[in-house]
């Protein structure tokens, strides 16, 4: 088992995020993204190498008291936790520490959402009601008792697995003021990015699935841990590599 996931090259492009007032498309540069979310096994390796991220050693400021609560003990997963299943109950600080340990980083919301539009054949499948419906069906179901391994999920056109249908995932800028707790008043905020009254500024009002991801992220704080929230890592392509590719 690898200590960190394989990465896929995401070719950059342009996309319009769900919540903008000016509807200006945004540019996402090419980057690398883990094809699967970080597993329990990989995270266990990490905490073994970094004792300060073991459950008993973390500060409440960086991870709340449910941090890794599904594990049997500090350094044991226990019989009910699959090593291949994605790790959950991790805080944003812990996820970020894991990423830097592996010389990676967390993907930004833009990067994550850019890739999340894809299905197996299309870069952007969000206009297909079937695609949205599959996502909604997942959002509408309570959490399963046991999480499956991400490798059982089909690859999307970028070679990425289980972006949808398994867990929620941390992003580097999850709290950049997309949605406040009062979702209906957000259009009144003086910010560039926001959810609006649930409707006014969303570029696609019927894309409830994306709506819910923004709402979910907005409910988080950096030290929160949640039973169905994990992460995967990204990496910026160094300029030299990119210029080599171009030449």
């Amino acid at each position: 088992m690898e200590s960190t996931a394989e990465m896929a090259l995401i070719k950059g492009g342009v996309y319009t995020p769900l919540y903008t007032t000016d509807k200006t498309p945004r540019i996402v540069s090419s980057f690398l993204l883990d094809s699967t979310p970080v597993t329990n096994h990989q995270f266990l390796e990490f905490v073994k190498a970094n004792p300060k991220w073991q459950r008993k050693n973390t500060l409440p400021l960086f991870a709340d008291k449910n941090y890794l609560k599904h594990w049997l003990s500090n350094l044991e997963l226990g019989p009910n936790v699959s090593p291949d299943a994605p790790v959950v109950n991790v805080s944003w600080f812990a996820a970020r520490a894991f990423a830097s340990f592996h010389h990676k980083r967390l993907p930004s919301v833009d990067e994550w959402e850019y890739v999340a539009r894809a299905d197996a054949h299309r870069i952007d499948a969000t206009s297909d009601p079937e695609f949205t419906k599959i996502l909604l069906d997942w959002y509408g179901r309570p959490n399963p008792k046991h999480l499956k391994s991400a490798t059982t999920f089909p690859q999307n056109i970028h070679g990425i697995q289980a972006l949808h249908g398994l867990i929620w995932e941390w992003t580097s800028d999850f709290n950049n003021a997309m949605v406040t707790g009062e979702s209906r008043g957000d259009s009144g905020l003086d910010r560039n990015l926001f959810c609006a009254g649930g409707a006014v500024s969303a570029t696609d009002v019927t894309n409830y699935a994306a709506f819910m991801r923004y709402a979910f992220r907005a409910s988080l704080k950096g030290n929160y841990t949640v039973e169905n929230l994990g992460f995967r890592c990204a990496r910026t392509i160094p300029p030299s590599t990119e210029s080599k590719k171009q030449s």
Binding site: N66, G181, E182, A218, S219, V226, E227
Partner: peptide, 15 residues
């Protein structure tokens, strides 16, 4: 009060 409590009660799972 604004939002009728909505913003103050926005709660992530397990909180």
């Amino acid at each position: 009060g604004a939002g009728g409590g909505a913003a103050s009660s926005f709660t992530t799972p397990g909180h």
